[in-house]
Structures are given as structure tokens and as C-alpha cells.
């Protein structure tokens, strides 16, 4: 197990993978037989493929590297780098504060966020699954699906 920013990762995990799908529920602990095509860096909230690629290039890690093959020195450097970035709860708080501000002002956008409905004037008869999934006051929080 390798620990980055206090999160345990399986050794076989790719540091960064080309695909983009990720299920956040699996992040905290991953059993050993977890499919290896998960990402470690991109699993942090607020850190996407672009930033991950840059961080990896900065530490000269190739895109298909698995965590087991990255030397401990580099892991420490990664942790140090990540600790200076606005990711995880800091990033969540920014988003949540923005939504909260809208709600407190009593704007339509804030209200729609609170109701879990589309915010920008879309129809609501059908096709509001994304809004249902994402729009909450606690966006990106414990009960949110991202």
C-alpha cells in the first residue's frame, strides 16, 4: 500500500490512466483485487487529467506507471506538491460556498440548486438526471455522488 495525502492506494494502481470514468465511492479503501485501471491522482477532488499529467511530467513518471513502481522519494515529493494545491475539501468548499452564496441571496440559481433541479432554464419534464445527481447544497460532499 502506498499512501499519498493520507489516502491508501493499491500498489497496482496506475498513477494516471487515460480513461476518465471514476467512481468516488471506491476511493477511500481499495481491496487488493481491485481493477488496476483506477487512478490515484485523478481520484482527488479538484485534480483532473490535465493537472495530473503535468504533475507526473514534473516528477518524470510515465503515464502507465503503477504506484508500486514509483520510488518512495517521488511519492514524498508528490505528497508535498499535493499538499500545496487546492484539492479535496478545499476545492469542495469553494464550490459549496459559491452555491451557498447564491442560495443566501435568494437567487433562482441558489433555489434551484437547493431543490436539485436544473439551474439554467432547461426543461424539467425529462432529462434532468445530471441535475438530480449533482445539484445539492453540499455539492461534492459526503452524500453527493461526485
Amino acid at each position: 500500500m502506498t499512501i499519498i495525502m493520507g489516502v491508501n492506494f493499491n500498489e497496482k494502481k496506475l498513477v494516471r490512466a487515460p480513461s476518465l470514468s471514476y467512481d468516488a465511492n471506491k476511493k477511500e479503501l481499495s481491496p487488493d483485487n481491485e481493477p488496476t485501471l483506477q487512478k490515484a491522482l485523478e481520484s482527488f477532488y479538484g485534480l483532473g487529467p490535465q493537472l495530473a499529467a503535468r504533475i507526473m511530467a514534473k516528477n518524470t513518471i510515465h503515464p502507465l506507471a503503477r504506484l508500486g513502481s514509483v520510488p518512495p522519494k517521488t511519492i514524498t515529493a508528490l505528497t508535498a506538491e499535493l499538499s500545496t494545491m487546492t484539492i479535496e475539501n478545499d476545492a469542495r468548499r469553494i464550490v459549496q460556498d459559491n452555491i451557498k452564496r447564491l442560495r443566501d441571496m435568494g437567487t433562482i440559481r441558489g433555489r434551484r440548486h437547493a431543490m436539485g433541479l436544473p439551474v439554467r432554464g432547461q426543461r424539467t419534464r425529462t432529462q434532468i438526471e445530471t441535475a438530480k445527481r449533482l445539484n445539492t447544497l453540499e455539492r461534492g460532499g459526503t452524500y453527493s455522488k461526485i
Binding site: T60, I61, H62, P63, L64, A65, S69
Partner: peptide, 19 residues
């Protein structure tokens, strides 16, 4: 194809592929 480890060589513009 960026499928094996690489690292920068000290004081040089080159990169080695240690593994």
C-alpha cells in the same frame, strides 16, 4: 511510447530509462 520508467540525468538535457 512512454511505457517504461524515465528520469532526468543530472546536469544534462537527456533522460535515461533505468528499468
Amino acid at each position: 511510447t512512454a511505457a517504461t520508467e524515465y528520469s532526468q540525468i543530472h546536469n544534462s538535457e537527456q533522460f535515461s530509462q533505468p528499468v
